[in-house]
Simulated scan of single mutants.
Amino acid sequence: MAIDSFGSVGPGSQPAEADGGELQYMEMPKGMITFARPILPEREDVAGLQAALAVLSAVADSLAAFSPGRPNAVHDLAGLDNANLALVDQVLGEGEVSVICGGDMQAQESVLAGVWRVRRTGPEGRLASDTIEVGAFPSAVMAQAFAGSREALAAPAVYPAGVFNAPPLIAEINEHIRRTGPGVEPHAINLSLLPHTEEDLVFLDRLLGEGSVAILSRGYGNCRVTTTATRDVWWVRFYNSTEALILNTIEVTALPQVASAAPEDIADSHGRLIEILEVYR
């Protein structure tokens, strides 16, 4: 199987199987090519949009009250009409992190770090819920991220031909899965620096399995993060401007830091939102 010099695994990197089957991978979030600051309306243009301003004021209060480990604050937008929703959309804009969770949930970080728009769809793609979450990462996504996942990797009795360095990595991954929890630093396995064969990577990819969450983060370049079907095990891949894989890692952690809003950025978001709201008071 042909894999590039960085050992990539993913769409287009593997030929079709001999039996005609193909590996299937979750589609990554799209539409995140450029960063655009929100275009805010003039003060006179928000007359009568008190419901939207009340929601945004409540979001500002949640930002002020944020602390690591505290449950996310959730603000339901179901009661807003189209005009009020449009104002919320303008103020929040689109930030650096986009998330797909399964086939029915999407989350988008706003231009205010730690403020997330979370939407669920129902039958026929109809909007089922529309909320704002304030926190390091959407709790609605985390609740599904590893639902039904296996607790550890089972090493096979016999490894496929060409697999040499995967066995010790399986033991390393299992050891750190047992240690994950609050306050535990992420454990990263840098596959770009470790010796491995093409067969090692394909074997690991299949053994870990495919999870339900795909994240695109542009805060640290173009970074794509996906869950596996193994608890607290993530693929974290960095790409350059030409879409070449430059860093390929497996992270064992509750949530990779690249996808999480930092406390200092959330504090800054509070100050920025207060400044915006002052214009309309």
Rank of each mutant, 00 (worst) to 15 (best):
Gly7Leu: 00
Gly7Val: 01
Ser8Trp: 11
Pro11Val: 07
Gly12Asn: 01
Gln14Gly: 01
Glu17Cys: 08
Leu23Phe: 15
Tyr25Asn: 03
Met26Leu: 14
Met26Cys: 03
Glu27Gly: 09
Met28His: 09
Ile33Tyr: 15
Phe35Gln: 13
Ala36Lys: 15
Arg37Lys: 13
Glu42Ser: 10
Asp45Arg: 12
Gln50Thr: 12
Leu56Arg: 08
Ala58His: 10
Ala60Gln: 12
Ala64Tyr: 13
Ser67Asp: 09
Asn72Phe: 04
Ala73Tyr: 04
Asp76Gly: 08
Leu77Gln: 09
Leu77Phe: 07
Asn84Pro: 04
Ala86Lys: 15
Ala86Ser: 13
Leu87Ala: 02
Val88Glu: 05
Gly93Gln: 09
Gly95Lys: 05
Cys101Ala: 15
Met105Arg: 12
Trp116Lys: 02
Arg117Lys: 14
Val118Gly: 02
Val118Cys: 02
Val118Glu: 01
Arg120His: 14
Arg126Gln: 11
Ala128Gly: 00
Ser129Arg: 09
Asp130Ser: 10
Asp130Arg: 09
Val134Cys: 03
Phe137Asn: 00
Pro138Phe: 03
Ala145Tyr: 07
Ser149Asn: 07
Glu151Phe: 07
Ala152Cys: 08
Ala152Glu: 10
Leu153Arg: 07
Leu153Cys: 04
Ala154Gln: 15
Ala154Gly: 01
Pro156Ala: 03
Val158Thr: 14
Pro160Leu: 03
Pro160Glu: 08
Phe164Tyr: 12
Pro167Thr: 04
Leu169Glu: 00
Leu169Tyr: 10
His176Leu: 00
Arg178Ser: 09
Thr180Gln: 15
Gly181Leu: 03
Glu185Ala: 14
Glu185Gln: 12
Ser192Leu: 01
Pro195Ala: 06
Glu198Met: 08
Glu199Pro: 05
Leu201Asp: 12
Gly221Leu: 01
Thr227Glu: 04
Ala229His: 15
Phe238Cys: 05
Ser241His: 09
Glu243Asp: 12
Ala244Lys: 11
Leu247Cys: 06
Asn248Cys: 04
Thr253Arg: 01
Leu255Tyr: 04
Pro256Arg: 03
Gln257Asn: 12
Gln257Ser: 13
Ser260Trp: 11
Pro263Trp: 12
Glu264Thr: 10
Asp268Thr: 09
Ser269Asp: 06
His270Arg: 13
Gly271His: 15
Leu277Lys: 03
Tyr280His: 04
Arg281Tyr: 08
